[in-house]
Amino acid sequence: MPTPHLSPQPGASGAIQLAASWPNWMEKHTAAFIEVPLRIALIVVVLGVIRWVAKRAITRVVQHILQPSGNEGEPRPRRSGRGAAVLLRDRSRASQRREQRARTIGSVLSSGVTIVLALLGTAMILDQVGIALGPLLASAGVVGLAIGFGAQSLVADYLSGLLIMVEDQYGVGDTVDLGEAVGEVEHIGLRLTHVRDLNGGLWHIRNGEVLRVRNDSQDWARAVLDVAVAYDANLDTVYQVLEDAGRALRENPAFADVLLEDPSVWGVQSLDADGVVVRLAVKTVPLQQWSVTRELRRRVKDALDAAGIDIPFPQRTIWLRNEAPATEFAAR
């Protein structure tokens, strides 16, 4: 339809027409300039309140799960898989591990809630503006798939780190064996674990590469001592000497809280070429089995010497043959 020709209007008439059309223009654009911004502001406020409430709830739940029971610094027995003795050994490290786990787990959950709410809010705002979400979601799916293939190891590291903390497989201050890395855990994060070995080297291990863990700081440990005696020694006397040495060690005030039971003689471990090997074992608090074994060696050595029982040493019998040369016998 052709547009009718409008003759120019005087200034006063144009102002009158503009004033007359203003209510219609406002009515048509009210949704764009007033309702939509109000709806967006309402969405932002509601999502912000939900995020604040969720973070508060996550913080309280995590602190409630990880907080110690009873006196401050004392762990709940058997709750985290660690005996009371190891945590009482160093309360500051136990508190540090607990706080780190709570902080990290809370941070991860809070970040997850924030991301979910941000995506939800963005989708709702775009819907209010009138932008179609179908093509955007399809594009985001393709991009997310590409990123997922490229960052598989990174995702595995983060998931493994989260599970390590939630399951409390090990924490700061624990002595662990992660394969090549053996030592004390100095830091554990979502992606990396830092282990200080015996020589002072600091290992940085990706959590996704931790396939198995031996934690020497959980529940209890065992000191095992193999003692070799001569074949002519009376084994009943040897057993009694070893038991007396172990009992005396437990009665020592310096080791009273370290040994969890009386040392026991397990019996003959092997029959070697140089002597009979008898095994002595005792349960200890974690990480103290090595010091207990060293002290047991000293006491057992003194007790065997006092009882006149020889500790055998390698012995070899050498046969020497002195044959005269054949020329000498021929001359005779």
Rank of each mutant, 00 (worst) to 15 (best):
A223G: 08
S291K: 10
G144S: 14
S291I: 09
L287W: 00
A306T: 10
S270A: 15
S7H: 14
R191F: 15
S110R: 11
S7V: 15
L225P: 12
L18Q: 02
A32Q: 08
A15S: 09
S92P: 03
L287Q: 06
A140T: 00
W220F: 11
A85W: 13
Q152N: 06
P4C: 00
L163R: 15
Q67T: 14
I115R: 08
A32G: 06
R39Q: 06
N252C: 02
R98P: 02
T193A: 06
S13Q: 14
E27Q: 10
A221P: 04
V282R: 07
V213E: 12
E184Y: 06
G130M: 05
I147E: 15
P37Q: 00
I50Y: 11
L159N: 11
P253H: 00
T104Q: 02
A146E: 09
I318S: 12
K301L: 13
A221M: 10
P314I: 07
I311T: 15
L18T: 02
D262S: 04
V277W: 15
A57V: 09
A230P: 13
V238I: 05
G200W: 11
D177V: 01
R97C: 00
P253G: 01
T104L: 07
P8H: 04
I318D: 12
I188F: 03
L249P: 12
A94T: 01
R294L: 11
R89K: 11
T114P: 05
D219L: 12
T122E: 00
E209K: 11
Q315A: 11
Y158F: 12
P68I: 00
D305G: 15
E323R: 14
A223D: 09
S107E: 11
S153Y: 08
H187L: 02
Q315T: 08
H194N: 03
H204P: 02
A85C: 03
G121Y: 13
L235W: 13
Q218P: 01
D236R: 09
G246P: 15
S217H: 07
P8R: 02
A12M: 06
A85S: 07
S110E: 08
L159Q: 09
E72T: 03
F33I: 03
V229M: 03
L47Y: 13
A306L: 09
W25N: 01
A254W: 14
V176Q: 04
L145R: 01
E167V: 02
D262E: 12
G141R: 03
A281Q: 12
V278K: 08
L154Q: 15
R82D: 14
T317W: 14
L260H: 01
I205R: 04
R316Q: 13
I309C: 10
E186Y: 08
Y170H: 04
L42F: 12
Q152Y: 13
A140N: 04
E243Y: 05
S69P: 10
G81K: 09
L117W: 13
S217K: 00
W319R: 07
F255D: 00
D244M: 08
P4F: 04
R332F: 14
V210G: 05
L296G: 06
A54E: 06
F149V: 09
V227E: 10
D90W: 08
R82M: 10
T193K: 06
G179A: 03
A54G: 06
A15Q: 05
D274E: 03
S160W: 08
A102S: 13
I309F: 09
D174R: 01
V108W: 10
D272T: 14
A181H: 11
A306V: 11
L154W: 14
R321L: 12
V241N: 08
L136A: 07
V195I: 13
M124T: 04
A41Y: 12
